[in-house]
Amino acid sequence: MPVKAVMRDDAIFVEEDYSRLEAMGYGVVVDDALRLDPVEALYLTYIGEITVYSNSNILDFESLVKILHSKDPLLWVKFTVYYDLRSRGRVVRPGVTDNSLLLYSSKKSTRAEIAIYVVEEAKIMKLRELVEWIRSARMQGRTTVLAVVDKHGDVTYYETSIIEPLKKVG
C-alpha cells in the first residue's frame, strides 16, 4: 500500500508512517513530517511507494512531472540519474547545488562520500564551473563524479579530479 504524501506550498511531505522511508534514505524530517525533495517524491510515486495528494486530489506521476518540471527545468535529468542509481540499489540523496546529487558508497555509510554533478547533452556548460564545483566538493572530502545524460536518456559517469601533472622522478 502506498503511503500518503501531501503537497503543501510546492513541497511534498509524508506526515504518517514515514520511518521506513526515512530509513531507506529518503527525505528529511521537519516538524514531525518527512519532507521529500521533488526528485525523491517523483521516484517514490513512480515505484508506487507513495501517493501524492494536493488538497484532496491525487497527483499521478504525469501531473507530478508537469508541476515539478515547471519549477525546476533540471528535474527530469536529475530524476534520470537518481533513478539509475536507485535501481542499482544505491542510496542517493539530493545534492548541495541545484544540479547535483549525493551518493553513499554503501548502505552502511553515514555520510555521502560521492558528489555527482548532473549535466545534459545540448545544455551547454562551462568547464570553469565544473572546476569550481569539483574544488568545493573535494574540499568537503567527497569524490566527485560527472554524470552526462545524453539525448536518449543514457547516463555516462566519470570520476573527475583536478590534477597537477607532475613527472615521476627516476
Binding site: I124, M125, K126, L146, V148, T156, Y158
Partner: peptide
C-alpha cells in the same frame, strides 16, 4: 578547451 567557452557535455563523452 577554452575555460570560458561553453561546451556540450557530450563532447566530454566523445573525448572519453
Amino acid at each position: 578547451v577554452d575555460s570560458n567557452k561553453k561546451i556540450d557535455p557530450v563532447d566530454i563523452v566523445r573525448a572519453g
